[in-house]
Design a protein around this nucleic acid. Structure first.
Lengths: 185, 185
DNA sequence: AAACTAATGGACTGTATGGTCCAGACCTCG
DNA sequence: CGAGGTCTGGACCATACAGTCCATTAGTTT
């Protein structure tokens, strides 16, 4: 999906259908043949594509966030994935942000990916607490929010600073914070 | 600055000069009279306005981030400021993000505000380490990055979740993390 | 090969946008 | 009062965009 990368690099509003047509070596009629709903439907497909891609890159760790090894693996997968991309930042949060107040329907779709994503962190933390790995009064809700915030803040800074460093620091800090909620044994 | 809020709500690309004209009850010629450089110059003014506004909202704590009380006050000021705004999220990071690859010159301006902002955190942490409040091997660089990432991630989630909760959790987590770097006395 | 259908290119249209320009209102000063 | 200059409204222009349409090609069936 070359279109997805174009939109990632330049944003939804700044990417015209002509840009996409030129980048994909097809014609306008082709574009509307495959996406009868026009740009909105194209964006929808891009949201799905990027959402799945981002989640896939974190597998199988997303389902293993109930052990410290799982979290370590996840951290490594995230850094490897975003470090290997051509563009900085996270396409999903960028789409979610831009689509708010531009295309409410597509914004919902990208928000859904954000929710699913955080859901994996939440589920892992919940299982950790139930297993006694975390303190009984640790809040999976709060911890998942702060961890998810660190992740996306790190990704955002990645973009403004053009470096992977902030993401590393953010994830290191987030994991260290999780450890402070570990049950003392 | 009504224009600043319009751009905050809808983004640079999705806000036309006509929208701004309508919102400010003036005419096109007025707009170009005050901003001969056109939209780019208008955006530049908005960046400056929002940048100063955001930093002002955190004063006087920005210069007091070398004590735990200072950090508490800062956390409170940030929550109060963003909780009282009409729109969610942070205008500066939103501008910085959108302007990358749209107007390189203005992107630099907004990135500058991000850098200045983080600089305050860094300076405070550096003074804390020098004063022995932090462990000698604590890294102001890393800590400022992770704290700043938490802040901006929290603000981003504020926007996708339409709630102040993620920002609260993010800041709480960030401050708790700072405390783990405190010198044990 | 003829007849028919589906895919394809790209010219075309209506609209919105950033930006220009000029006619007239409104001051200022002699 | 009136000449000179400045400010202001909004009509206007060129361009870029999303989306439509039709003539032609390519493929399939008989």
């Amino acid at each position: 999906m070359k279109a997805a990368d174009l939109v990632w690099a330049r944003g939804v509003g700044a990417t015209s259908l002509d840009d996409i047509r030129a980048g994909s070596a097809t014609s306008k009629s082709q574009l509307f043949h495959y996406f009868p709903g026009g740009k909105s439907e194209l964006i929808s497909a891009i949201v799905t594509y990027q959402g799945e891609r981002v989640l896939d890159a974190q597998r199988p760790y997303l389902d293993a966030l109930d052990t410290w090894d799982g979290w370590e693996g996840w951290r490594h997968a995230v850094l490897a994935h975003y470090g290997s991309q051509v563009h900085w930042g996270c396409p999903i949060s960028a789409l979610a942000r831009e689509l708010i107040g531009l295309d409410e329907e597509r914004a919902k779709e990208s928000k859904m990916y954000m929710d699913r994503w955080r859901g994996y962190l939440y589920d892992g933390l919940l299982r950790m607490r139930e297993a006694g790995t975390l303190k009984p009064f640790a809040s999976p809700e709060s911890l998942s929010l702060s961890t998810f915030a660190s992740l996306h803040g790190g990704l955002l800074l990645t973009q403004t600073m053009q470096s992977i460093r902030p993401l590393e620091s953010a994830l290191d800090g987030a994991l260290e914070l999780l450890h402070t909620a570990a049950a003392t044994q």
